[in-house]
Design a binder for these strands. Structure first.
Length: 531
RNA sequence: GGCCCCAUCGUCUAACGGUCAGGACGUGGCCCUCUCAAGGCCAAAAUACGGGUUCGAUUCCCGUUGGGGCUACCA
C-alpha cells in the first residue's frame, strides 16, 4: 500500500503525559472473580502479591471499558480500535476492563462475546480483562474516604420522592437538581439514622465554580458547577455507581489517557471533580465522535446490523472492517484510505480525530472488504473461506492437499466478484457439485435456438481434438468455430456458458472451462443436460 | 426545558487566511469485454444561513438554524 506521510506529530493540543499519582494507601488485593462462575484473568500487574508497588513510568496506559450489557457494537469497536492504536503507537499499554457493575443488565455471555469480537478484530489487550465488579470494596472505601474528607455526604432522601420532583420539574419544563436536604444533617443524626437501619446513598458534594478541561480532540470545555447535581456515588444497596467506579479504577490502573465516546463528555466534569477530591492527577481526556445510523441518530438495534459479530457473520473480513472503522472519525490528513496494520499504527494520532459525528456507510465497508479480499494471500483466503464452504456443505479436505492448486485457481476467478466471504461458496457451488443446475431463464435465453445444441456439440468435438487444453487454444477454437458457423462468438459462448454452468452469468467462460477441466467441459458440451 | 458539543458533495473526509474547495464510497456515462464482476477514464455533486474581523474567509468572532450528546440509586 502506498507509503504516505501522515499528519504531523505536532498536535492540536499537546498535553504532557504525566504520571498519575498512586494514591491508594491501603490498596487491597484484587479479589478473585469467581462471583458469577466464569473467571476472567484477575491478576493485576499494578501491585504484586508482596504489596510492593511497581515502578512508575511515564508509559501511556489506555483502557477500553465496555459494559457487558450487549454485544460489541460498531461504536464500541471503533473506540476500542482508537485506544488500541494509541497504545501501539506510543508503545503504551492497552487494558481491557469490563464494566459489569450493573448486575441487572450485565451477563457473562456478553462479556465472552465482546472478547471474541475484539479478538476477531485483532485488538489484543496487554492487561486484563479485569472485571470492574472485582473492585467494589475499593470503590466503597474510596467513597468512605470522600465522606470523611467532607467531599461527600450521606443522603436519606427516598429515591421515589426525588424522582417525583424530577418528573414534576420536567413537566414544568424547568431544571431539577437534588436540593441538598441531607447535606445539612449533623453527624449525630446521620449516625443515628444509620444505626436505625435507615438506607442511605452517598452523594458527592459538588463544589462551587466551573470545571474546565482541555479535551484532546474537542478542545476547551467548560461547565458551570451549578449545572452539576450532587450525584450518587454509592447506592442505598451499597453498590458503587459508574462515576465512582470508573475514576477509582482509572486511578488504580494508572490510566494516562481516557479515550472514549463523546457521549461521555458531560460525565467528564463529574469525574474530574472526583479526581480532584481524591488528590489524583488527571489523565488526558479524548472524546471521539459518535457513529450514527443512516438517519443520523445514534446507532441502535433498529438500524439493523450494529454488532461486530453480525459483520463477521455477513462475511466481512476483520482487516477490512478495522480499516473501515479507523476512517470513521479519524483521518491521516491526506488521501490515503487503505492501510495495513503497521501503517495505521504509524499514522494514527489523536490530532487526526474528527470532532464531527459520522454516519455509518455499509457500502463503503463493502468496498473495503472487496479490496482486502483481492489482496489476501491464498492461504489466508482459504482459512477465511473454509468455514463458509463447510456451512454450505461444499468443503472437501483435498482442497488443501491434492486439489489445492485447482482450488486456488477457482478462488482466483471468484475473488473479483466477491464482496463478502459468503459469496465464495455460493459462486463455487457449480464448480464443486457434479450435476449442472439449470436456471430455466438462462436456458430459455441462450438455448432456445435448435441449432445451438448442434453447435455446442461441434465445439465439444473440436475441443476434444485439441492437443492442448489451454486458454489460447480454447479461445482460438471457439472463435474459429463461430466464424465458420457464421455466428457471433458471443452467441456460442453464452450457449456454452449455460451448458457448462446452467447459468447465464459466470466468470469468464474460458477461465471457467479451464477450472472445470477438459473432461467435464467436453462431456457437458456433447451431452447437454435436461431440457 | 436546561447544559455541553458539532456543522465542507447523499455518505466518509482533505483544507489549519490566498486552492479551479482535493480524495474515497455511492450515482451516471464511456472504455475494456463472451455474461457478471473487477479495472481504467470522465461527469454531476459541498463550504447551512446572517452578520462581523481582514486586502482576502471553508478557515477567526457573534448570532440564527439544524444535528447529536448528557440531563438516573444505567454504564
Amino acid at each position: 500500500m502506498a507509503k504516505a506521510g501522515c499528519r504531523g506529530a505536532a498536535g492540536r493540543f499537546v498535553q504532557q503525559n504525566r504520571i498519575l499519582e498512586q494514591h491508594h494507601p491501603g490498596a487491597s488485593r484484587h479479589p478473585s472473580s469467581s462471583r458469577r462462575g466464569k473467571r476472567f484473568s484477575s491478576i493485576s500487574p499494578y501491585w504484586d502479591s508482596t504489596g510492593i508497588r511497581r515502578r512508575m513510568t511515564n508509559q501511556v496506559r489506555v483502557r477500553f471499558a465496555p459494559s457487558p450489557t450487549g454485544y460489541l457494537h460498531v461504536g464500541g469497536a471503533r473506540t476500542a480500535l482508537f485506544d488500541w492504536l494509541y497504545a501501539r503507537k506510543t508503545g503504551g499499554v492497552f487494558i481491557l476492563r469490563i464494566e459489569d457493575t450493573d448486575t441487572e443488565r450485565s451477563s457473562d455471555e456478553m462479556t465472552t462475546g465482546i472478547l471474541e469480537s475484539m479478538t476477531w478484530l485483532g485488538l489484543t489487550w496487554d492487561e486484563g480483562p479485569f472485571l470492574q465488579s472485582d473492585g467494589v470494596d475499593r470503590h466503597r472505601a474510596t467513597a468512605e474516604r470522600l465522606v470523611e474528607s467532607g467531599h461527600a455526604y450521606r443522603c436519606f432522601c427516598p429515591a421515589e420522592a426525588i424522582e417525583q420532583k424530577r418528573q414534576e420539574a420536567a413537566a414544568r419544563k424547568t431544571d431539577f437538581k437534588y436540593d441538598r436536604t441531607c447535606l445539612r444533617l449533623g453527624p449525630e443524626e446521620v449516625r443515628g439514622r444509620l444505626a436505625n437501619g435507615e438506607k442511605a446513598v452517598i452523594r458527592f458534594k459538588v463544589p462551587q465554580g466551573a470545571v474546565t478541561f482541555k479535551d484532546a480532540v474537542i478542545g476547551d470545555i467548560t461547565i458551570a458547577g451549578e449545572t452539576i447535581e450532587d450525584f450518587v456515588l454509592v447506592r442505598s444497596n451499597t453498590q458503587p455507581t459508574y462515576h465512582l467506579s470508573v475514576v477509582s479504577d482509572d486511578i488504580e490502573m494508572r490510566i494516562t489517557h481516557v479515550i472514549r465516546g463523546a457521549d461521555h463528555v458531560n460525565n467528564t466534569p463529574k469525574q474530574i471533580l472526583l479526581y480532584q477530591a481524591l488528590g489524583a492527577t488527571l489523565p488526558v481526556f479524548a472524546h471521539v465522535p459518535l457513529i450514527l445510523g443512516p438517519d443520523k441518530t445514534r446507532m441502535s438495534k433498529r438500524h439493523g446490523a450494529t454488532s461486530v459479530q453480525s459483520y463477521a457473520e455477513q462475511g466481512i473480513i476483520p482487516e477490512a472492517f478495522r480499516n473501515f472503522l479507523a476512517l470513521m472519525g479519524w483521518s491521516p490528513g491526506n488521501d490515503q484510505e487503505l492501510f495495513d496494520t503497521e501503517e495505521l499504527i504509524r499514522c494514527f494520532s489523536l490530532e487526526g480525530i474528527s470532532r464531527t459525528n459520522a454516519v455509518f456507510n455499509p457500502e463503503k465497508l463493502a468496498w473495503f472488504n472487496l479490496q482486502y479480499i483481492q489482496k489476501l494471500p491464498d492461504e489466508k483466503l482459504i482459512a477465511y473461506v473454509k468455514p463458509e464452504f463447510e456451512k454450505a456443505g461444499l468443503w472437501k479436505d483435498e482442497f488443501q492437499t491434492e486439489k489445492y492448486a485447482w482450488f486456488c485457481s477457482m478462488l482466483a476467478l471468484l475473488r473479483p466478484r466477491a464482496k463478502t466471504l459468503l459469496e465464495f461458496p455460493r459462486q463455487a457451488r457449480m464448480f464443486i457439485i457434479d450435476a449442472v443446475e439449470f436456471d430455466p431463464a438462462a436456458v430459455e435465453k441462450s438455448m432456445n435456438d435448435p441449432s445451438i445444441r448442434r453447435n455446442l456439440a461441434a465445439l465439444g468435438q473440436r475441443l476434444e481434438a485439441l492437443p492442448d487444453f489451454t486458454h489460447d487454444a480454447v479461445e482460438a477454437t471457439i472463435r474459429g468455430l463461430a466464424t465458420e458457423l457464421g455466428i457471433k462468438p458471443g452467441a456460442l459462448m453464452s450457449g456454452a456458458r449455460v451448458a457448462l454452468t446452467g447459468q447465464s452469468v459466470s466468470p469468464g467462460l474460458i477461465e471457467t472451462m479451464l477450472v472445470f477441466g477438459r473432461e467435464k467441459t467436453i462431456s457437458r458440451l456433447l451431452h447437454i443436460g435436461p431440457q
